[in-house]
Amino acid sequence: MPQDLKTALIVGAGVGLSGSLARKLSALGWQVALAARNTGKLDPLVSETGSRSFACDAANAEDTARLFSAVQSAFGVPDLVVYNASGRVRGPLIDLTPAEVERALAVTAFGGFLVGQQAARLMLGRGSGVILFTGASASVKGYAQSAPFAMGKFALRGLAQSMARELGPQGIHVAHIVIDGGIRSAVRSVPGDRLDSLLDPDAIADSYLHLVAQPRSAWTHEIELRPWTERF
């Protein structure tokens, strides 16, 4: 892990994948900022890792600008920014509520743009940094009764591709990670007869850290992570 990378901001933080990332980064000596609309759920993780939480609605431009200003004041320009936020609305297409779909798209896609823009503005001044976007199976496959999630994740993937091509030559590593499968959690346990049916969040976090450590002569711009039981 490069020794000059020391500050991480995880937006849309929760206790699953974000928790694994926070623990691993903190163990490596990083300062970790966790942003979420509801920061109360992060209190145990903050206590455990020594990280700091910030309240933010990532789909709100003013909120996002305040978040980056606060993180910069507390820690300096972040070296790593991870966008984990997403919105999901399920149901038959003809029954979906437009306002709920609009909100889901705002969180998944527009929020990714806002966070990516703020991160890029700060990182370009230094000429280095890593921006990672968390995708899903829906980034590449639109499932029945899940149109809003697919719409948002497809857009996020397009954003990541565009940013990678624009910012890579300027020293900013942008990558998109397709999480193709469910993630193991306290409320989503692994069936005893299917131990590998869900992704281990610690294993996912290891792949994120690998991306962060890559030399620019061999950057990855997209990876897919799935348990071997998941069908392609």
Rank of each mutant, 00 (worst) to 15 (best):
D95N: 11
A65H: 10
F232A: 13
L34E: 00
V187N: 08
E222T: 09
P201V: 07
P227K: 05
T49D: 08
R231F: 05
L9N: 11
S18R: 08
I94K: 05
G112R: 02
L167D: 12
L199W: 02
W219G: 06
V11T: 15
V115R: 03
R37K: 02
E100D: 15
C56P: 00
G129Y: 06
V32M: 03
F113S: 09
P148C: 01
L21K: 14
S197N: 08
T108M: 01
A136K: 03
A55V: 04
I177V: 15
P98F: 08
A13G: 11
S53G: 11
A13L: 13
V115Q: 01
R226H: 12
G171Y: 04
V11C: 11
A144G: 12
L159E: 14
F75L: 02
A13C: 13
P169I: 08
L198Q: 11
A55N: 03
A186T: 11
D180L: 15
A120F: 00
V107M: 00
A203K: 13
M151H: 05
L105G: 07
G91A: 01
A109Q: 01
I183C: 12
L42F: 06
W228M: 13
L225M: 09
V174Y: 02
V212D: 12
A144P: 11
V15G: 08
D95Q: 13
G171D: 01
A59D: 00
A175T: 08
G182Y: 09
L122N: 00
E224H: 08
L132R: 03
D200T: 02
V187A: 10
G181W: 12
V190I: 10
F154H: 11
A106D: 02
G50P: 11
G181N: 13
S128I: 07
E100N: 11
A136R: 15
H221S: 14
V212A: 09
P2Q: 14
E48S: 13
S86D: 04
K141P: 02
I10N: 14
I10W: 12
E100K: 08
V15R: 09
P78V: 03
A33V: 06
E62M: 09
V82Y: 07
A109C: 05
A33D: 09
A155H: 01
R121N: 09
P2W: 15
C56V: 10
A104F: 15
Y208D: 08
E102C: 14
P191Q: 07
A150S: 10
T64I: 05
